[in-house]
Design a protein around this nucleic acid. Sequence first.
DNA 1: ATTACTACTAAACGAGTAC
DNA 2: TGTACTCGTTTAGTAGTAA
Lengths: 229, 229
Amino acid sequence: MTEKQQWQQLYMLLKLAEMGAYNRTAKISTEYLAKKLGFSQQTASRYLIELERCSWIQRKVTPDGSLIKIKEPGIQELRRLYSNLKVIMETNIPPSVTLEGTVFTGLGEGAYYISKTDYKKQLIDKLGFEPYPGTLNVKLNSDYDIKTSKDIEAYPALEVMGFQNEDRSFGLVKCYPAIIGGKVKGALVTATRSHYDASVLEIIAPVCLRKQLNLKDGNKVKVEILTQF
Amino acid sequence: MTEKQQWQQLYMLLKLAEMGAYNRTAKISTEYLAKKLGFSQQTASRYLIELERCSWIQRKVTPDGSLIKIKEPGIQELRRLYSNLKVIMETNIPPSVTLEGTVFTGLGEGAYYISKTDYKKQLIDKLGFEPYPGTLNVKLNSDYDIKTSKDIEAYPALEVMGFQNEDRSFGLVKCYPAIIGGKVKGALVTATRSHYDASVLEIIAPVCLRKQLNLKDGNKVKVEILTQF
DNA sequence: ATTACTACTAAACGAGTAC
DNA sequence: TGTACTCGTTTAGTAGTAA
C-alpha cells in the first residue's frame, strides 16, 4: 500500500471516528457515509472493504447498514496522527528541521572530545549508539540555514553533562538525533563552548559518515534534525 | 474545490508543518518534499501551487528551494483537525451520533412543555432558536439505536433548568443540538421524567419538521445528534 | 433496504523537458 | 540547480446493476 492511499484511509478512519466508531460500534450505511464524505456509495463501500482488509476496522454487514468499529491498528494510526499534531500545535517546535551545508575538514577536536570516556558513556546511553570516533563538520552557507541552526539551540536537547579531569574541565554538550543524507541515523552535537559558530554543524553517527555516504570536502549534505525523542 | 481534494491538501499541510513550516518559514525543495511524501517532484510542485492558490501557505520560490510558511487559513485548518481529534481521543465521546427511527404522533405533551415561557426562554438562550410549538416524536426500532440513545443520556448536555408554578413542578430538561433528516437544525430534548423511554426521541426545531421534511407517521427519519457545542 | 461487482469515465500522477 | 509545463499513463471514482 502506498503512502497516499494510507492517507486516504486515515481520512476515512477519522470520519468513522467522528461518527462514533471509535471505542464503540457505529451503524453507518455506505450511502450515508458517502454523503458525509462527498463520495459515491460505491467508493465508500470500496474504502470500507480496504479498511477491513488492513485490519483498521471491524465490520459486520447487515441489511440495515454496516456495524463498524475501529480496531487496535486503526486506533494506533489515529493516535499517531493526534500526537504528531499535538507536538506541532502545542510546542511550536517542528518535529524535524532539515539543514543543508557543505562538508569540510575540522581540526579534529570533535574526535578528541567524544573519545573521552565520560562523554562516550553518556552518548551511548542517550543516543543508543557508540559514536564513530570522529565528527562530520558541515558548514552552513545560506542565511536561512544559519538562522535555523540558531533556532535549534533553543529547543530542548538530550544533554550530556560536563566533567573535570586532572588537566581541564569539559562543558555541557547538547545532542539532537538526526538523519544525515536522508539515510544514516546519527546526531547533531553542540558543545556549549564551541570553537565554531552557528554556521557549523558537528555530526556524529555509529558509522563513518564520510565513508557511508561517500562524502568528500565540498560535497553538499542534508541533515534532518529531530526535535522529539 | 471538492472535499477529497481538500483532504489531500490538509495532508500536505500537515507534512509541511512537520517540516517546520508552522509558525516559521521552512526551506523545502519540491524534490525533497516529494521524497518525504512518496510521490514525484511534479506532484509536489502541483500541490504547493494549489496550497498557495487557496492561501493556506505563503511561498517564495528561490533557485535554492521554496521558502514556505503556513498562513492563517492553513493554521485554522490544522487547528480544526487537531480539535476534532482531541475530542475523539480524549473524551471518548463521538462528535456526532446518528439514530434512525419512525415518526409517530405522541400525546402532545412535548408541545405543552415547551409552551411554558420558563422553558422557552432558556431554550432560545441555549439553542439559539425559538422552538416551533410541538415536538417530533421518533420511535427507535433497532436494538442498536436504542442502545445508542441510552449512551447519549450519559453525555454532557445543554441543560434547561426546571421550575415550579402554582400547579406543579417542572423538571430538568437536557438538550442536544441535532440535524434532522440530514438538513434541518434542531435539538433532541429529553425530560428527566419522561413518559417515554430510551426508544423514543423528542425533537424540536425552529420550524415544523413534519412540514419542512414532509414527514408522516410511519416515515423513517435520521437524527444526527451533536455532542460538542 | 442494503452492499459490492463490472465496466466505463474522470482525475491524478509522473516522465520528459524548458526555463 | 531548482520549478513547473505538456501530455501520455495509471489510478481513483461513478453509473448501472445483481445479489
